[in-house]
Design a protein around this nucleic acid. Structure first.
Lengths: 192, 192
DNA sequence: GTCTATATCGCGATAGAC
DNA sequence: GTCTATCGCGATATAGAC
């Protein structure tokens, strides 16, 4: 199991740095200090490595992206969640950078993403519903909830890429700007 | 000049449909009904074709994305502009789908994009400034202007990809949802 | 301007020894 | 589980005839 994980972390580093296109299985093997044959013993091909990395990301999301279970969420809870989310995303920057292209190229990966997304998206809508019922938010119009969810999703999945594209560093400051953006979108609905 | 344009429109169709990765110069030549050698007479390589397509897109933006020059912009003018913008974007879907990856792979393309973006981004800020001066918007805090510009940019550049990723059709209805989203973000600042 | 033919290269993937 | 060796393939790119 040790080698398998070593391959994954090596591949992750290369993908983040150069993009999945420019990185071949040979490059990964060389950087990992193993033979190409050995890499193929552990993974059928590059797509399978990418899928495994996505599974890692997804697992981290499931574990780390939790609101406090025993009380209603506050705006600060939400902010902490957003920060955690961006931090995880940055570790797997290549996935979000090449999102649509990866999904287009690998239907299996797309399916895994759609499942995860459905959980998150409808979880978000459920959260809003709970908040509305508790009187914490005045957001009840379904169309408005959809719009809010769409905007939040856009920020979550594309803010880091947007920084990259525009030539701005994907550092802590850039990350904070994303958090700030998200909070400004959300705050009006938390007017208690 | 005829063949060159024919190659470009053929390549555009293939790229939009299958992604730049899956499409080789041979595929383009075959689909265009010419020989690979002929393609290389007109373009040095695939990157050059992509750059030429980006130049087309950029030119269309410059021509079609204009607010009325002789009077102050209304919210309806802005909506028309947003609609035009999405329409152009959809024609060149592959570029936005693979945005960060393309920019990372080709510094020359990235440079061209950064120039175009700077024009648009600062043009947007200038527009806000004009509106503020005319009393059409109450938006004067620079940080707030930046946030608004950032959100609008995110919607512009990533809404179509977001539709694709989430498995929703990139049709007129999806496009209208993007316009709707953008207008809901902008409208508060147009409270006349 | 366009074609055919071809050289080169490197990636993906497998077989078989250890 | 890991290595070495290697095959087949297809993509990029060029040369030279027409």
């Amino acid at each position: 199991m040790k080698t398998k994980e070593h391959i994954l972390s090596t591949a992750l580093g290369l993908f983040n740095q150069k993009g999945t296109n420019a990185v071949t299985t040979n490059h990964i093997a060389e950087a990992a200090g193993i033979s190409p044959g050995n890499l193929y013993y552990h993974f059928r091909n590059k797509d399978e490595i990418i899928r495994a990395l996505y599974a890692q990301l997804s697992a981290r999301n499931d574990v780390e992206l939790q609101l406090p279970p025993n009380r209603l969420a506050t705006i600060d809870d939400v902010q902490a969640l957003v920060r955690t989310n961006f931090t995880i995303l940055r570790d797997y920057a290549f996935i979000y950078r090449e999102f649509a292209a990866l999904m287009q190229a690998d239907p299996e990966l797309h399916k895994a993403y759609l499942t995860a997304r459905a959980r998150g998206y409808f979880g978000f809508r459920a959260l809003i519903a709970v908040l509305a019922q508790a009187g914490i938010t005045n957001l009840s119009d379904p169309a408005a909830v959809t719009r809010l969810a769409d905007i939040c999703w856009l920020i979550t999945e594309f803010w880091l890429s947007s920084l990259e594209i525009s030539g701005q560093p994907v550092d802590d400051a850039g990350l904070e700007r994303g958090i700030d953006l998200m909070m400004h979108v959300l705050r009006p609905y938390f007017a208690v």
